[in-house]
Write a protein that binds this DNA or RNA. Structure first.
Lengths: 107, 107
DNA sequence: CCGACACATTCGAATTTGGTTATTTGATCT
DNA sequence: AGATCAAATAACCAAATTCGAATGTGTCGG
């Protein structure tokens, strides 16, 4: 349902894009050229991937002269963590209710 | 890099599939028919989505007579949580190093 | 055994996606 | 100003995805 989650999962579903995001998390800030060097794909390809990550709220762009520096956004992964823990929570609460039931049946 | 993560993100990147997984987390266990009723897509479509979720390790199948019951796998989301916290960790440790640096510069 | 049922699988059409090359925009240097 | 460099955008193509219709497989009831 949520468009935010959709953008998040979609952008992270591509291995190249995920690798780029990982590099940004490790290194903090990188230019398009630096990112292009090790990905094995062309510069326009890299720019496109960065656009996707940016529109998903995972990275930010900082323009400095003729080059653009990209860095991870601290709260970009929050919706992902929220969703995940919510899913685990659903399962957990079901489990708890089951435990309750069993305990009541025990008596 | 990791094939597990790839399968996970890819299977959760489809909104229909994510909605199905959410329903399973909320309800615990559902048959293909029950899942088909509310998704708005055909039964073969549902079966295929379930196959993707299953091969990603997110759900399990339990055959009972001529119907199949699907339920979420408790540890299916672990690799996702691991990856996420690792990313946050990278950022955090960079932040810590920066704090260290600033503190040393302060003196 | 035969028909109905629950689900899985196959196949083909329509759409989306990931990549390219070519071009454009904007900043820097001489 | 003109050349050059960094990055973004455009136009395009091949491959992958998603879906439905048709079909296959196994199970239950009569």
């Amino acid at each position: 349902m949520s468009a935010t989650q959709d953008l998040l999962f979609k952008s992270l579903s591509d291995p190249t894009r995920r690798a780029m995001f990982e590099r940004l998390c490790r290194q903090g800030e990188l230019t398009v050229s630096e990112l292009t060097e090790q990905t094995g794909i062309s510069q326009p390809g890299v720019s496109k991937h960065l656009g996707v990550l940016k529109s998903a709220g995972l990275i930010r762009a900082r323009h400095e002269g003729r080059q653009t520096h990209y860095s991870p956004k601290l709260d970009g992964l929050s919706p992902l963590m929220d969703w995940t823990s919510q899913m685990v929570g659903f399962w957990q609460s079901r489990f708890d209710r089951l435990e309750d039931l069993l305990q009541r049946m025990d008596q």
